[in-house]
Amino acid sequence: MSELELLGGSSSPGNRGGGNGRENGDVSNGSGSVKGSGNGNGSGLGSGGRGHHRGRRPKLSSNADSGWLEEIHRRYLSRQRRTSAAVLSVQLLLLAAFLGLWEAAGRLRWVDPLLFSYPTKIANLLASSSLDGSLWPHVGVTVAETASGFLLGTLVGTALAALLWWFPFLARVCDPYLVVFNSLPKVALGPIFIVALGQGFLSILAVTLTMTVIVTTIGIYNRFRDMEPGLVKVVRLLGGSRWQLFRLVILPGSFPVIISTLKVNVGLAWVGVIVGEFLVAKEGLGYLIIYGFQVFNFTLVLSTLVVIAAAATLMYQGVALMEKRLVSGGREN
């Protein structure tokens, strides 16, 4: 891969140099040799390099067979790379412009800095609170709640889906209730959890689970039910039991869906946990936001948002990485 990139990397200027070299004759010796080394990563470097000394004709014709496909590929790669570079620079530019504008707006009082704060103020607060260690317990609590929320939510949802798949009668009975419960705004149940489970971890987890479990159950049950009939038939024809069918086809065949549900649940769990912390917590990032709001410290609110964005992104990327590892193995279809 790196070799390919290297090859493409030296090629885009090299190509042009080589082209010029042919037309301009001896003048562009230097650029001609650049092309030679660029080719070297591919195949016929030796002959190409030597050909350069003698005269252009033989090199041109010998390269014409093997070289032009490579050249098209190289041009393709460099075009791709240029697009990616352009996208990245525009992204960075946008971010810089946003931060700069915000900073200017805050410092020059275009907007009320008490309400909107500004980036350096937020960065200072983050630096001091992470250095004196006051930030980390909040991050730890919230991340733990979120992680247990989406893992447990996916696990329980999958288990319920398996139950529905195993008992089709149960699935038909439960169907309308699932639909109603799924459309209910579950956050509204928060007060009940607080009274029933106390002000703490359990209540927050309960809020998170109500948000993740039902969606997970419905999504994964649909996948279980819609498994390719041919694969199911094969196992039945080989005399497999219902349990074997589940273990050999239904569950492994649904694995990609389960993992992608896990990804969706990361987002839902963050919502559940932050809302849960709004309602009950004495620590955690949601608590910091509510606290910052109550003492009118919006720098604290915004800096906590930054931390949440960072943590949520990291968690999502972690699950995405896991998905790549687990699902890529042999799935060529």
């Binding site: 390719e228 080989l238 050999l248 086809v249 694995f255 042999g330 060529e332």
Partner: peptide, 21 residues
């Protein structure tokens, strides 16, 4: 259709019936 399980190797696919048995 061959209905091979895409996540199993060829050998594991061929052995499916034996495994079930």
């Amino acid at each position: 259709q061959d209905c091979l399980l895409p996540w199993r190797t060829i050998r594991d696919n061929a052995a499916l019936g034996l495994q079930i048995g």
